[in-house]
Amino acid sequence: MNIRPRLVLFDLDGTLYVGDTPIPGAIDCLAALRAQGIALRFLTNTTTKSQQQLVGQLRAMGFTLGDNELISAPVAARLALEKMQQQAGRQLRIWPLVADAIQPDFSNFVIDEQQPDYVVLGDIGDRWDLALINRLFQVMHSGAELIALHKGRFWQTGDGLKADIGFFVAGLEYVCSKNALVMGKPNRDFFQLILDSAGVAASDALMVGDDIDSDVGGAQQMGIVGCLVKTGKFRASYFAQSSVCPDMVLDSVADLTVR
């Protein structure tokens, strides 16, 4: 498929690198795209590291990117909450159930674990237990709304695939009869935020990722061309049964060429 995008969007973990190791050819691929004058943006649902940490991690691996070229789900959540706070005309009360590294992203809001307006849910590792689930059930049953930084089903680790926070988000939605406001991929507003940051229309953009649902499916619903790479969390069996049909399928990001 021949495409000449003005903007290429990249997923991070599993697409450009795995762990702390770049995918072979990924760094050269980005350099070639920049040399052609194509804008780049980096999207991630990672919620265990701050924006600065993620940018620093990529640079340490040899990638070149600007501070504002990477947009994470926590940043999108903060922007959305700031907008809702402005509309409410008062400070919002939130319970940010997120990793310590991104707690400062929500310092402009009142922290209230008893009667929050919103529960902000991210990756918290082994902190999950039945007592916490019941506390969340109680505050949501009393009126708090749920903001999920993403709703991923599973993710790739050095030890293989592991269940992601979509497990808990879906469970809370079910027991509380509420729908979460999902901030990261495949949320349409998240993709629009990225497009707006580059001033590019969806029809002039290409998304490259290893997640057929969040990366490819999320992009295609916006009219963005979706490219699936067979690295990271890609599994042939899952791909075969998916209803999402990528516009392109590549063995690796290193095989991406545009013209």
Rank of each mutant, 00 (worst) to 15 (best):
V208N: 02
R153H: 14
G166Y: 14
G199W: 13
K185Y: 02
I165P: 04
L181A: 10
K151Q: 12
K178A: 14
D196C: 10
A201N: 09
W155P: 00
G217L: 08
G160F: 05
F190W: 02
L195D: 08
L206E: 00
L193H: 14
L172M: 12
F190A: 03
S203M: 04
V182K: 14
G152H: 09
K178G: 06
G160P: 02
M207G: 02
V216I: 13
L206D: 01
A198G: 11
N187C: 13
Q156M: 12
A201R: 06
L195V: 08
D164W: 02
A180N: 10
D159F: 08
V200E: 04
G209F: 05
L193G: 11
S214V: 06
K162N: 00
E173A: 10
G184F: 04
D204I: 06
D210Q: 10
F167W: 14
I212T: 04
R188N: 05
L161F: 11
D189F: 14
V175M: 08
G199Y: 13
K162S: 02
M207D: 01
S177Q: 15
F154L: 06
D204P: 02
R188Q: 07
A163P: 07
C176P: 09
D213A: 11
W155I: 06
F191H: 10
A163R: 09
V200T: 10
Y174K: 15
D204G: 04
I165K: 08
K151V: 01
D215E: 05
G217N: 07
S214M: 07
A163Q: 08
C176K: 12
A180R: 12
P186D: 00
F154V: 07
G171R: 13
G209M: 04
S177C: 12
A180G: 13
Q192N: 14
D164R: 11
D210K: 01
I165N: 08
F168W: 15
L172W: 12
A202G: 05
R153L: 15
Y174S: 15
P186L: 03
D159C: 03
F191C: 05
A163I: 15
M183W: 07
G166I: 11
D215R: 03
V216R: 00
A202L: 03
K151H: 12
A170M: 10
Q156C: 11
K185E: 04
D213C: 04
S177R: 14
S203F: 00
D211A: 07
L181D: 11
D189K: 13
G158P: 05
P186N: 04
I194T: 09
N187G: 05
G199A: 06
E173P: 05
A205N: 05
D189C: 11
L181E: 04
D213I: 08
L206Y: 01
L172C: 10
D159Q: 14
F191K: 13
L181F: 13
S177V: 02
F168T: 08
